[in-house]
Design a protein around this nucleic acid. Structure first.
Lengths: 198, 198
DNA sequence: CGTGCGATGTATCGGCCCGATACATCGCGG
DNA sequence: CCGCGATGTATCGGGCCGATACATCGCACG
């Protein structure tokens, strides 16, 4: 893909958790990835080669391709979990690529996230309990709303964990023949974990 | 307050919407605020003045005080709304200081936020509708969860807007005599908007 | 009785990200 | 035919964060 296209894809995939990535971040990052040898870049072919030689000034698209090393590194990145894996953005990114990992990794990350959210929840309960009369009504309402969000997310995570343990996909139990065009996102594991079901 | 204390206060007040502010942001910001004339800094008095002159090396606390100009600027900041006022962090910060604004400002910001979240919600519905078979089950589940959060927030905002229009505080209808110690957060307006109720 | 650890406290540095901006082309509708 | 919005690449300044350093205090545990 070229940069602009990549940005649109990522925006669609991660739209639920963060805004579009900025250009000031996108292009320097692509250059960094290339310097590290994880992607290669190539100028797009102008037309049918020989044609239109006058348009040399046309700053054409640059097509990026992932290398074998890049694929390997990417697989490592989504499988390994650091402390930042469990905050909002980090978890969202990992989750969006769950289809490319194994069940053990998915469970590990879901449980780490649950632990993190439970901690946040306890912190909010503390504030609502201990510092209640020190804070104004609006601030308290904000904490209450945040607490509610934490409780809902914990329930959501527990559902996902239960599903994961029973070896099912997150929700839809494979409707029909599933597979759209090869564009779908699950090359390593066929569907989200299917080790014993026929 | 001094820096560390300020950080703790802000963490308690804004804990529901963002993590603690970093030191690498806190201290430079305090210096910027002082350069702009919005706060003044003063080294804390060591003890009873004359005492303990040997401890000159003790890098003591620095106490910051807001200036009249700073108070004015702060009032402007929380009353004026730009485009960034309606994203997650910006809205959260404004909301946390709602008790220091007037009802008109609160309504304006709540409605702007609602519009923004409704846009995000429509975007997610689009993705779930149009790009459903291009995305894997986990990504879809992420969008569904985000969509659910949007819907809940819209309902929350509408409750708040209705409350605001009827002139009530967000939830608790002034329990007892209210006012704790002067530490509470509502100097300009006595309680959250009270223009006609006796 | 000492010793070490966690909380309190101020401060800097490198790296990364974002918003704004610039520039260029293409297709479409008014 | 003119402009506007989408497509596309790119840079720059400023700000935020994580890591790190340094220093003191109180207290708990050995």
């Amino acid at each position: 893909m070229h940069g602009y296209e990549l940005r649109k894809e990522l925006t669609a995939k991660l739209g639920a958790i963060r805004a579009a990535i900025s250009y000031g971040s996108l292009y320097p990052t692509l250059r960094r990835l290339q310097a590290a040898g994880w992607i290669t870049e190539a100028a797009e072919t102008p037309a049918t080669a020989e044609e239109v030689p006058a348009l040399t000034s046309r700053r054409g698209r640059v097509v990026y391709t992932i290398t074998a090393e890049g694929k390997e590194r990417f697989a490592q990145l989504i499988a390994q979990a650091g402390p930042e894996t469990y905050d909002d953005t980090g978890f969202g990114v990992h989750f969006a690529f769950f289809a490319r990992t194994d069940q053990a990794t998915r469970l590990r990350i879901l449980e780490g996230r649950r632990r993190k959210i439970e901690e946040r929840r306890e912190g909010l309960r503390d504030v609502l309990g201990r510092a209640a009369e020190r804070l104004d009504a609006y601030t308290l309402e904000l904490q209450r709303h945040g607490l509610d969000a934490c409780e809902r997310e914990v329930r959501w995570l527990e559902e996902l964990i239960a599903n994961e343990r029973s070896g099912r996909a997150p929700t839809a139990p494979q409707p029909g023949a599933a597979g759209g065009r090869g564009d779908n996102d699950s090359p390593p594991t066929p569907g989200p974990s299917r080790t014993e079901r026929p």
